[in-house]
Write a protein that binds this DNA or RNA. Structure first.
Length: 954
DNA sequence: GTTCTCACG
DNA sequence: GACGTACGTGAGAACC
């Protein structure tokens, strides 16, 4: 495959033939390409690419490919590319603001304008431009002139301003989607036939071109009016008769504006023709010049398609879509994957059923100094799991399985396979598993360490340990998953036996303990074997990738820390939780009855489908938006809007939803998770799932316990300390914004943090030019939103939605923000660039976070990836700060003689359980450690709170 | 199994 | 000049 085109070069040039208007070769057919329009559109639609000189060329590539296809296809007897020559035209005399306030084109686009003109020349295609006229006028003029000579015309553009030209014999072609735009398509867009498009545009106006139109009238209304009256002029003459008072007033008051607008949007087919029609005749390009251009840009696939062939040294000059594509290719076929021939086979493996054999394996592992190790259990929950067997691997292909508790559990009569006594085997293994001289290599070590730490499974503290999952995560977070099977396929080219294949699925699933020993061995020993092989492959790469320190000092040390936190769990006041649940249940019943009464019939309140039908069909309320599944949306935004209009049903459904969520997820969900042995809940912290380096929490998720509402916060009250103890919460204050001030080096923000000022007030004062002491609530609120927006890679639209203000106002605020903090804009651009070039970004501490979608073909996904790229260093940097604190804290507390222990991490917060008398001292240690783990250009800040419950500790 | 909704940072 | 619209998670219920 060609490496220079987007994988979807197809999207540009290889659309299905039937979608493309084909002219009989004998007919006269003019292709008019809207060159200026194309470049903007292609720039945003095509993935980033650079030529060998490093200049962005994605739009140039798309353009060159498209035109060369037109030439190759002999589609069109005539062809020309039309450009805008200047910014001012006769329209500015009519209306000075026309196309004013157009933002500057993005910097990556600017150099492409000249290159597109160069490409046009190289392709031997006529270039048309004329001072004082827009490309659209020239296109209109040429279309009319060509038609007069009996030819047909295709306008290559999707610009709605050109749609007025569509008629039999003149059609448009969307150059990106390769879709023809004919009368039907125009009518679909404007609600009127092409000839009436100018009338609709004159009324609706066009904010992008600054065509004023009539305020309050959009395309929908305009189309309706034009249908009724026939034209803008006829409408204005009859404006008095309009029934709707607002609409009538608007039309009367903006009569002149509407007429001017029509002149602005109507294209001038009388524009001069800078080149004679004959000059537009399609002719083959001058080969040497074209080849030179294509080579200079590195457009290898186009060279090949045009039959220029491969020249020596060409590989070095091809355009690169950043290194991402290369990396992705490498991931698909790993260069370091061992070749299949000569590779040690994955089995057969030995089943160990006597102590002598076990001792031989232990000795072998000790002399090897490193051993792949894995446990098999009967549960995914490490704190309930019983050890069923374990496996060891000492070299590629050399591994064994040691069954310990196979057989039907609880069935004394059932025959059990011959196997070692678990206690005796574990005692024999203990020296190996705790031997400082033998490295134990595990996949997801935390799980196995918890299993073995429990007394019934030997009570063994496995050490030292390497974890292949974390080694992979340290280098490739966000790039792919880090489960063993996935890593094995990726790096070893080997698909291990799936667990489901061994135990079966659904009804037929048997516990691992009941799997026959030969199958159990094939599966379990293979896991240890794969783990050891992955380790041999991946561990050396840590240093090469610059990830060794991150792995050694953070991820690897986190394993024991999290093991202890998970095993500690947090106490839940079960009686209080049950009372809360009963109260919620009672309220839900009453609320449902009330809702049925209001709706006039019973319905399932929890069904968005039924609710949507009641609101928007039966009650015929406005605001019914259908999602892609065709169902009405009934989310908070929709219901809040209705509630604000006084729709009682909407308000009450929102109330019901809140309580229902609290009951099902947090009351019932939590009750089911209380460990009967200690009355505590033990979460699982996932170390390698988040793309940003964060932890996540599951079964139960203790990182999303309610706090924002009064009702929700009640649930925090059920998380309590043991008698004689208190919970201590230590929160990093504004950590992500501090990282922003640090990385972008913003003097004002640095100063505000240094002085301990309120950061949102400072931002408000800076961007709204307020007296620092006199920032009002609303300004602070807006500044807070924009501060959050910044670290999320926001758009003007996003900010507008959240502030409930018009997008242009949001735009103004954002512009003010960037004007005030130019360092932040530069930083953002730099991050996006970094992501495009490398496929990853780095946190301020150097961790790589991969953003694979940055090279996506779909503009939408790519835009999402850009926002993720902006956010990743902040979110990931904050994650790293708190992880560094977590690996230091247990030691620091011990050294201070304190008995408190860490229980939970919630991204920027740590929760401890401490003896009452030690609360203050523990808080001091926590603050000192947490604030000193990173030296930034701003201080880190930690807020402390203590209480009997988690609610009180806040 | 997927979609919608909503809880947290 | 056009697409959709703020980052990252996990859980429960409804729906297909």
């Amino acid at each position: 495959m060609a490496t220079d085109g987007p994988p979807g070069g197809a999207a540009v040039a290889e659309a299905p033939a039937e979608a493309v208007p084909v002219t009989p070769p004998e007919g006269k057919h003019l292709i008019l390409v809207d060159g200026s329009g194309y470049i903007f559109r292609a720039f945003h639609a095509l993935p980033p690419m650079n030529n060998p000189a490093g200049v962005p060329v994605n739009a140039v590539f798309g353009f060159t490919q498209m035109i060369s296809r037109f030439l190759l296809d002999h589609r069109g007897s005539h062809i020309a590319v039309v450009f805008d020559a200047s910014r001012t035209t006769f329209r500015n005399e009519l209306y000075p603001d026309y196309k004013a306030h157009r933002p500057e084109p993005p910097p990556e686009l600017v150099p492409q304008f000249a290159l597109i003109r160069e490409a046009t020349d190289a392709l031997g295609v006529c270039k048309i431009e004329q001072e004082g006229f827009e490309a659209d006028d020239l296109i209109a003029a040429y279309a009319r002139a060509f038609e007069a000579e009996g030819g047909r015309v295709t306008i290559v553009s999707s610009d709605k301003d050109l749609m007025q030209l569509v008629r039999p014999g003149v059609e448009m072609l969307d150059p990106i989607k390769q879709k023809p735009i004919r009368e039907a398509e125009v009518e679909e867009k404007f609600g009127v036939p092409p000839a009436k498009v100018v009338d609709v545009q004159a009324l609706a106006g066009d904010p992008t071109d600054n065509v004023p139109g009539v305020p309050g009238i959009g395309v929908k209304t305009a189309a309706q009016l034009i249908h009724e009256y026939g034209s803008v002029e006829a409408l204005l003459d009859n404006a008095e008769k309009i029934k709707q008072p607002k609409r009538r007033e608007a039309l009367l008051a903006n009569r002149e504006q509407a007429l001017v607008s029509k002149k602005l949007v109507a294209l001038d087919a009388d524009a001069p023709l800078p080149a004679a029609i004959e000059a537009l005749e399609a002719r083959p390009p001058e080969r040497a010049g074209l080849e030179g251009f294509l080579r200079a840009q590195g457009f290898r696939s186009i060279l090949a398609r045009l039959g220029f062939g491969e020249a020596a040294g060409d590989a070095g000059t091809r355009a690169r879509r950043g290194a991402v594509a290369a990396h992705q290719a490498a991931a698909a076929v790993p260069a370091d994957a061992p070749r299949a021939p000569g590779e040690a086979p994955y089995g057969p493996y030995e089943t160990v059923t006597d102590m002598a054999a076990l001792r031989r394996w232990i000795a072998e592992a000790e002399s090897a100094g490193v051993v792949g190790f894995d446990t098999e259990t009967d549960s995914l929950d490490a704190l309930r799991a019983s050890l069923v067997g374990l496996s060891l691997a000492t070299a590629p292909g050399r591994a064994c399985y040691v069954p310990l508790r196979h057989g039907k559990a609880g069935d004394m009569l059932a025959e059990k396979p011959t196997q070692l006594d678990p206690a005796e085997a574990l005692e024999a293994l203990r020296p190996l598993l705790t031997d400082p001289g033998t490295l134990k290599v595990l996949q997801n070590a935390k799980y196995d360490m918890e299993v073995l730490a429990r007394p019934e499974n030997g009570g063994i503290a496995v050490d030292p340990v390497d974890d292949t999952m974390l080694i992979s995560y340290s280098m490739e977070a966000g790039r792919h998953g880090h489960g063993m099977d996935e890593l094995s396929v990726l790096h070893l080219g080997h698909k291990p036996i799936p667990y489901d294949e061994v135990t079966g699925t659904g009804r037929g699933r048997v516990p691992f303990a009941e799997v026959p020993l030969d199958r159990a061995t094939a599966y379990a020993a293979e896991d240890a074997d794969v783990t050891l092989r992955l380790h041999a492959l991946l561990r050396p790469r840590l240093r090469e990738e610059g990830a060794l320190a991150l792995y050694e000092e953070v991820e690897r040390r986190m394993v024991a820390v999290l093991r202890d936190m998970e095993m500690a769990g947090i106490r839940v006041d079960e009686a209080e939780l049950r009372r809360t649940g009963e109260e919620f249940a009672g309220r839900l019943v009453a609320m449902e009855a009330e809702l049925h009464r209001i709706a006039g019939r019973p319905f399932a309140v929890g069904s968005p489908k039924q609710l949507g039908e009641i609101l928007f069909d039966e009650m015929a309320l406005p605001g019914g938006k259908r999602g892609k599944s065709g169902a009405y949306s009934t989310d908070v935004f929709v219901l809040e809007e209705l509630a604000a209009q006084g729709v009682e049903l909407a308000r009450k459904v929102l109330d019901w939803r809140q309580i229902s969520k609290l009951k099902s997820t947090y009351v019932d969900g939590l009750l089911a998770q209380i460990d009967p042995n200690d009355g505590r809940v033990h979460t699982n912290f996932q170390m390698a799932v988040a793309s940003t380096g964060r932890l996540s929490s599951t079964d139960p998720n203790l990182q999303n316990i309610p706090i924002r509402t009064e009702e929700g916060a009640r649930l925090r009250r059920v998380f309590v300390a043991e008698p004689g103890h208190l919970l201590l919460a230590a929160d990093y204050s504004q950590i992500e914004l501090r990282l922003l001030a640090h990385v972008a080096d913003v003097p004002s923000l640095r100063e505000a943090f240094a002085r301990g000022e309120d950061i949102h007030s400072r931002t408000a004062a800076d961007i709204f030019r307020l007296d620092p002491g006199k920032v009002d609530r609303e300004s602070r609120r807006r500044a807070k939103m924009i501060n959050f927006g910044i670290i999320y890679g926001m758009s003007a639209f996003g900010l507008a939605t959240r502030l409930a203000i018009p997008p242009n106002e949001a735009r103004t605020i954002i512009d003010a923000y960037f004007a005030q903090y130019p360092g932040i804009r530069d930083y953002m651009e730099g991050v996006k660039e970094e992501a495009r070039i490398h496929g990853f970004v780095r946190t301020p501490f150097g961790r790589k976070l991969w953003i694979p979608d940055i090279a996506a073909r779909e503009a939408q996904r790519r835009a999402g990836a850009e926002r993720a790229a902006i956010n990743a260093p902040f979110q990931g940097g904050a994650a790293e700060v708190i992880k560094r604190a977590m690996v230091r804290l247990p030691r620091a507390l011990r050294d201070a003689g304190l008995k408190g222990r860490m229980l939970l991490q919630v991204h920027d917060e740590l929760v401890f359980e401490v003896p009452e008398a030690e609360a203050e001292a523990t808080g001091g240690v926590a603050r000192r450690v947490m604030e000193s783990v990173a030296e930034l250009r701003v201080p880190l800040g930690v807020e402390l709170g203590t209480g009997r419950s988690w609610a009180e500790a806040h």
